[in-house]
Simulated assay, not measured.
Amino acid sequence: MRGVQGTTSPGFEAVTEVFARNFERYGEVGAAFAAYRDGEPVVDLWGGLADPATGRAWRADTLQLVFSGAKGLTSACVLLLAERGLLDLDAPAAHYWPEFAAAGKERITVAEILSHQARLPGVQQPVSNEELLDHAHMAKLLAAQPPSDDPRAGFVYHALTWGWLTGELVRRVDGRTVGALFAEEFARPLGLDVRLGLPDEEHHRVAVTLAGPGVLPSPQSEDEDSFRALTRNPLTAPDAPALWNSPAFRRAGLPAVGAYVTARSMARFYACLARGGELDGIRVLKESTVALARRELRRGVSPLWGTPMAYGAGYELRTELALFGPPPDTFGHAGAGGSRHGAWPGERVGFSYAMNLTRAEFPDRRPLDLLAALHDAVRR
Rank of each mutant, 00 (worst) to 15 (best):
A271P: 11
S75C: 03
E202T: 01
P328Y: 01
H137C: 04
E112R: 15
W305K: 13
R295G: 04
R37P: 11
L368W: 00
G72W: 11
S339E: 03
G258Q: 13
P363I: 05
V110I: 12
E316G: 13
R107C: 01
T231E: 10
S265I: 04
G30H: 03
R295V: 01
E28L: 14
A373E: 08
R37G: 04
R107T: 14
F19H: 01
I108T: 15
T8I: 03
L317V: 05
D369I: 05
R295I: 00
L120T: 02
G306F: 05
R298Q: 14
P41Q: 08
L80I: 00
L323P: 07
A207L: 02
L304A: 05
R2E: 15
R264H: 14
E320Y: 02
R283P: 06
D193T: 06
T209Q: 12
D329Y: 09
L374Y: 08
L141T: 11
H135I: 00
W344T: 04
W97E: 04
F227H: 13
I108H: 10
F67Q: 06
P367G: 06
Q64R: 06
V257I: 09
V15F: 01
G69I: 03
L317R: 12
P367F: 02
Q117L: 06
A259M: 01
S302M: 03
A343H: 07
Q124S: 14
E28S: 13
P52M: 09
D149L: 12
S68C: 09
P255D: 03
S218R: 09
D51N: 10
L165A: 07
R359V: 15
L196A: 09
L370Y: 06
E17Q: 08
L190T: 01
N356H: 09
V43F: 01
A293T: 00
P199H: 08
D200Q: 14
R21G: 13
G104D: 09
L142W: 03
Y36M: 06
L81P: 00
D44E: 14
A271F: 06
Q125K: 13
A334N: 11
E130W: 10
M1N: 14
P255Q: 11
S288D: 15
P241D: 06
A207Q: 09
T16A: 12
G253F: 05
R298P: 09
A310Q: 11
E185Q: 14
